[in-house]
Amino acid sequence: MKLKFQYRPGNSLFHKMDPSIKFIWMVIIVLLLFIMTDPFSVLGLLLLQILMGKIGAKMGLSEMARALVIIAPAALTVSLLNIFVIGDLLYGAAMGLRMLAVVIPGVIFSKTTDPRRLTFSLVQVLKFPYMFGFMINTAYRFVPIFEDELNSITNAHIVRGVDMELKGIRGRFKKLQITVEPLLIGVIRRSQLTSMAVQNRAFGAYPNRTYTYVTKATKWDKIFLAAWIIAFFIYAFTLGTPSQLLSTFMPWAK
């Protein structure tokens, strides 16, 4: 199954960037959006993201627009709710724009990040335990398999006539129960076999391991990240104020 915003190989600046650096950059954008309460700043950041997507990630405007369209109804709802509940038009607009602005870095990240490199980067650059990377790898391998299995179970139940019998909320609950049972048994069986297979390949033999694939952040990656960290602090302590931070989390206290 192909996901809409899954990784697409390429040679853009974002493709070349270390995934962990990109990940931290995404977190900085989210934090920045948290402390931005005026819609003009949020709009500015959103436009900057789009520009970075276009130039840095070589993404099409239509591609980014598609992502924005998906989130637009939710953003609009949040805006309207804030406008009517708090009665502040600008604050409401900022809230809606925030949701749009947070989507673009997410799309840039997912479209330009090779999941394999991400796993290695998390372990080698951010020093996550290898078990964490192994779990991501395994999930990446097994999620489509479990998806097929779930599909097969659902189809088998339809053929048995489950849809005809189990209706309403109680019916749905029962349906979930009889679907989960064989699925869980399948998951447990596969997990046991996989555990046997990796032990057979000496998994966990030593606390550390050799890495044939080595990834690290380049000088430019670090400069990029440093620039964003500096930008964050400049905004937080000069353009933004601690009171904006307060209003973000407790708008009623204004």
């Binding site: 076999l193 297979a197 990796v198 390949r201 030593y206 391991r209 050799t210 044939t212």
Partner: peptide, 23 residues
Amino acid sequence: VQLTQMTVFDEVVFGPENLLRPK
């Protein structure tokens, strides 16, 4: 059930990497 890595190469090196063999 026995292949756990994302790419073909990673799968083959997985075992020897666990055994700390030289790169």
